[in-house]
Design a protein around this nucleic acid. Structure first.
Lengths: 179, 179
DNA sequence: AAGGACATGTAACACGTTACATGATTTT
DNA sequence: AAAATCATGTAACGTGTTACATGTCCTT
């Protein structure tokens, strides 16, 4: 469960609430978990049980309260250990490729429509990513120059992935047209 | 549930058993489902209930038997409809990037070890992919020149993805060394 | 005789998403 | 007054993996 380590990572930075974590993950590139209450809150409970985090309840007003989580030494040690564990290959699932595998059954214009739609999807997502980078709406801790560099490279990894995909689909369409 | 359409795709080609499907998926690039009984057999039951496939039980010996599934017109229509439905963006999950996000906490040599391991993982996977391509151990239907071309492009998409990743990690390591 | 391929299925678990449920506080 | 944000949680569902369970047939 990656998300636990992502949480530990953020808490290693500063104490945070579940709600804070949710927002931070939504704003940072490597976190593919979509704004997801269930996962975050249950992971926090599990981390608490395992002694990796402690929480302090802060009352505000009559009913409202929030839990501020802090990482423990045990949590820091677990994070460090995970950081040095063997990295895994990325998991890639592209259902478009499954469509393409059987696209020979389509009429030529339907087939090109499919390819064009995919190209547009990728291109517009790339624009969004670049815009986010440009506006600096993504989190970049930058506590040290090295950390800043690493986060920039992670962001770059995403952009490059979509650029690569765009190049591939473009060439595919060109080659089909030539026939 | 993509896998249902993948099954319909293969059955559109020829009648097959669940076991056949399992092998074919394992041998073709765009099918990311790992040799998985549960999914295939339950999907076949669901497709059968939905009238997308029929099956014929072939007895062989006293106890042994196998179910040969055939796609129906309804199944073919469902497949065609899915093929023309709007493609989705690929789903990419790279837990290595989550490790990297917090890698500033590591000693320089531990950090480079992490990067090197990832580079090696990607490089060796790329070798496997290229070897599979070269040996032709991957399925390539090639019933028409266009279909052959499409499957080659799908295979190329995979290779390009890992090549891109390899380029990215290589450059990242070089830039870190320069400091 | 042993091992591998053939063949079908179930059980338990892990991960992730959407939607539901509640209600206070702050901003417009 | 309405809308957005803050804040925590639960329920139901979908998808995918590993391991379990069973037994035959074919090759070495």
């Amino acid at each position: 469960m990656d998300i636990k380590y992502a949480i530990l990572g953020f808490l290693g930075w500063q104490p945070l609430t579940g709600y804070d974590l949710k927002k931070m993950m939504a704003k940072s590139t490597p976190y593919y978990w979509s704004g997801n209450n269930n996962q975050i809150y249950t992971a926090l409970v599990q981390l608490h049980k395992a002694g990796m985090v402690t929480n302090e309840v802060e009352r505000r007003g009559h009913y409202l309260s929030r839990k501020i989580y802090t990482i423990t030494d045990k949590g820091m040690a677990a994070l460090r250990e995970w950081l040095t564990s063997p990295p895994e290959l990325p998991l890639l699932r592209n259902s478009f490729l499954v469509q393409l595998a059987w696209a020979d059954q389509l009429e030529p214009h339907e087939q090109d429509c499919l390819l064009e739609r995919y190209e547009n999807e990728v291109a517009s997502h790339l624009l969004i990513l670049r815009e986010e980078q440009r506006r600096g709406s993504l989190i970049n801790p930058a506590r040290t120059p090295r950390e800043k560099y690493l986060w920039e490279r992670i962001s770059e990894n995403h952009v490059q992935f979509y650029e690569n995909e765009l190049g591939w689909i473009h060439r595919t369409r060109e080659e089909i047209k030539e026939k």
